[in-house]
Amino acid sequence: MKFILSLALSAFAVPVMAVSVTQVNCKTIEGRETVRILFDKSVNPAQPWTGFGYFGASLEVKVVNSRQSYKRSDVRMSPIKSYDDVDMRGDAQGFDGGALYLQLYPEIVNGQATGKFTGQLFVNDLDARAYYDFRSEGRTPGLVCVGQ
């Protein structure tokens, strides 16, 4: 009986977790860096643009087994194509000759968000002397992520 109850509860736990996320935790394919994106609001990956044209986010990149990290709190998230699309792009302002470009693609199965994302990130911040290039290569995504 306890097994059936725990199985029933776990079946409901996954969809509830994927309904909305406030942060996305990512790893690069090589596994040497981690990326965390914190959204300014709770986001439903299956419908991120309901009632909002864009929203803010913070970005943190950490190199594993190192003190090296990069933080940026002025990332602006917007749709890649249109407000009907679930794919997100993020960029930041205020760079002198640099750039920050982020893309997140939520995994949608049968119209439901799974809580998983793939994506890519490019950072060239001349002021902070930070350069990260986690772009997709062929069929391999630059980032593999899980929403929380």
Results as ranks from 00 to 15, higher is better:
25 N>F: 05
39 F>M: 10
127 D>T: 14
130 A>C: 08
105 Y>Q: 11
28 T>H: 00
101 Y>T: 11
133 D>R: 10
83 Y>P: 00
72 R>V: 01
17 M>F: 07
4 I>T: 09
20 S>R: 01
12 F>G: 09
147 G>S: 09
68 Q>E: 11
79 P>H: 00
116 K>G: 08
99 A>H: 10
4 I>V: 14
54 Y>A: 13
25 N>D: 15
39 F>K: 06
67 R>Q: 13
61 V>M: 14
86 V>F: 06
88 M>L: 11
46 A>H: 01
87 D>G: 04
43 V>T: 05
81 K>P: 01
13 A>W: 08
6 S>G: 03
100 L>G: 04
89 R>H: 10
11 A>Q: 06
27 K>F: 12
37 I>D: 10
81 K>S: 10
91 D>E: 11
107 E>P: 08
129 R>E: 12
48 P>Y: 02
102 L>A: 04
42 S>G: 15
33 E>R: 15
13 A>D: 05
137 E>Q: 05
73 S>H: 00
28 T>C: 07
105 Y>H: 09
97 G>N: 02
15 P>M: 01
1 M>P: 14
109 V>L: 15
104 L>G: 00
22 T>P: 13
123 V>H: 04
67 R>I: 06
118 T>D: 09
87 D>N: 12
87 D>C: 03
21 V>F: 08
111 G>H: 04
97 G>Q: 04
125 D>I: 08
52 F>T: 14
139 R>Y: 02
67 R>P: 14
134 F>S: 02
114 T>R: 00
63 V>K: 14
6 S>A: 07
43 V>L: 08
10 S>I: 10
130 A>F: 02
30 E>G: 14
63 V>S: 08
71 K>E: 02
80 I>T: 09
101 Y>G: 12
27 K>V: 13
135 R>M: 13
138 G>M: 01
23 Q>D: 15
104 L>E: 02
93 Q>P: 12
73 S>E: 03
42 S>A: 14
4 I>E: 07
34 T>F: 08
56 G>V: 11
37 I>L: 13
24 V>L: 08
141 P>Q: 06
56 G>N: 15
145 C>I: 00
94 G>E: 05
52 F>N: 15
26 C>T: 01
30 E>S: 14
8 A>Q: 04
56 G>P: 13
77 M>P: 12
